[in-house]
Nucleic acid binder design. Structure first.
Lengths: 257, 257
DNA sequence: CGGCATTTTGAAAGCTGTCAAACCCTGTGG
DNA sequence: CCACAGGGTTTGACAGCTTTCAAAATGCCG
């Protein structure tokens, strides 16, 4: 299937997105095709590298729920998410699904060194991404060691996160899983300069369940129990207010930081 | 704690190791300190790179059950496993453990870009490794882009394996988990030129359980059930003969390859 | 051959999953 | 502006798989 098939123009991205509230004020977009300077990887890049990156990037917008890459499809592109939330997932033939991660602005997508993608990526919300043709991207890697080292560090961090997730999936109770998940979202939001206490849940219960290795019912019950114990409230199904983040920490089962 | 604390000379490595049966006959060891040429990463290295790698390597042997690196400890070294089996694990404060992976000869260990190790590594069997001081290793990376690219590819593959494992932990039944595990071991042995049908299990049931997110009892029962269904036999607790590998494939829940 | 750790087996409990239905939001259309 | 439709979420009852706890069996090693 042609790669162009993946690009769909979204109906206008909904309500004033929270990314507008990012604290470090937005630098002017230096690239006509793609706001490369906002990619997290850029922090360690030099101007020449940035320009090269911009030169091969094209901007893509995708509607909520659309598929960005299909598991098993030829890995022709690398993306960097600039707006919205993406979920990565793998499926068993009978339909059971495991979400292996959620991506937020700044995250890379499709950074694989295999012929084909190993997972499916779908837009949870309306999404904007920078797209880089793989061969150009790899050519760039060879020219700019900085970039390569940075990617290695990113991959290493992702591997670490994956190991934490294995611990969660293999050994935590449903309540610990949900508590861990909420805190992860809160921390991630804080890192991105977004409001971190009334947390926004861009994904639905089924996504959360498939991320935590649970069912929607169990997720719902775990939230209810946390609510009953006074740890949080649910102003709306997609918002969680953490009343006692410290107490929640203890319920994750993890070491306290 | 000083890094030297980690190095312990093993009592002679036990019985004639199976690695002696590796099919591609061993090249002569080109390095007095460490058989770098046998590292899996070497396949894509140039002679000059190999020599540099050898120059900073020192050989380390570790007794079975000894700890090689501790989670949280300063990440001072990078290792490459040359002989034996290593387990990587993370623990929750109350003692629950998740094994995030088993390492076999050729695998890297301690390849992180953080201050400290994110997991504990322990020798399952007697083990030999090449040790590289981190700072020297990183200096080498900067000089040899080949090496860097190779590591990026390794990290990318590990990430993929981690995602498969998340699918297993989050969505597979105990039987599917055990079937997947056995086939993984068999395939890995085959890739290394080792006997792949009467599989050797260097790790005990507790390790298998902690890798699959189960208990030893459940692992045992799953094996029993597979045995009862004529899929395998257990010549000894640490050996599994696969009688119908194809049928086992179907029980993994995965797509058939 | 005996001691000990590992593995297996058994019975019972518990947590999470399944199935079904009610409820609630959200967005639409009158 | 309100009623309605529909999907998503919550709740309930029950079943089932895995865990727990305990004890027997097995295999390994001195």
């Amino acid at each position: 299937m042609p790669p162009d098939k993946l690009i769909m123009t979204s109906s206008q991205v909904g309500r004033g997105t929270e990314t507008d509230t990012i604290r470090p004020p937005r630098p002017r977009n230096p690239c006509h095709a793609c706001d490369v300077r906002e990619m997290s990887v850029c922090s360690s890049l030099e101007p020449a590298e940035l320009d090269r990156l911009s030169a091969i990037a094209s901007k893509v917008t995708v509607d909520a729920r659309a598929t960005i890459i299909y598991e098993g499809e030829e890995a022709d592109n690398v993306f960097n998410l600039t707006l919205g939330t993406v979920r990565l997932s793998k499926m068993l033939p009978d339909g059971r699904r495991q979400i292996t991660g959620f991506l937020f602005p700044g995250d890379f997508l499709g950074l694989v060194f295999t012929e084909t993608y190993g997972y499916t990526a779908e837009a949870v919300t309306a999404v904007s991404l920078c797209r880089f043709p793989r061969w150009k991207f790899e050519a760039l890697l060879s020219k700019f060691p900085h970039l390569e080292k940075r990617l290695l560090s990113i991959a290493s961090n992702e591997l670490m996160a994956a190991q934490d997730q294995m611990l969660l999936l293999g050994r935590k109770s449903s309540q610990e899983k949900v508590a861990s998940f909420l805190l992860m979202l809160s921390r991630r939001a804080a890192r991105h300069g977004l409001p971190d206490n009334p947390i926004d849940l861009p994904m639905n219960r089924a996504d959360i369940a498939d991320y935590l290795g649970l069912t929607t019912e169990t997720v719902s019950r775990a939230l209810k129990r946390l609510h009953k114990n006074g740890l949080l409230t649910l102003p709306s199904p997609s918002q969680v207010a953490l009343l006692q983040p410290e107490a929640l920490e203890e319920l994750t089962g993890d070491d306290l930081p």
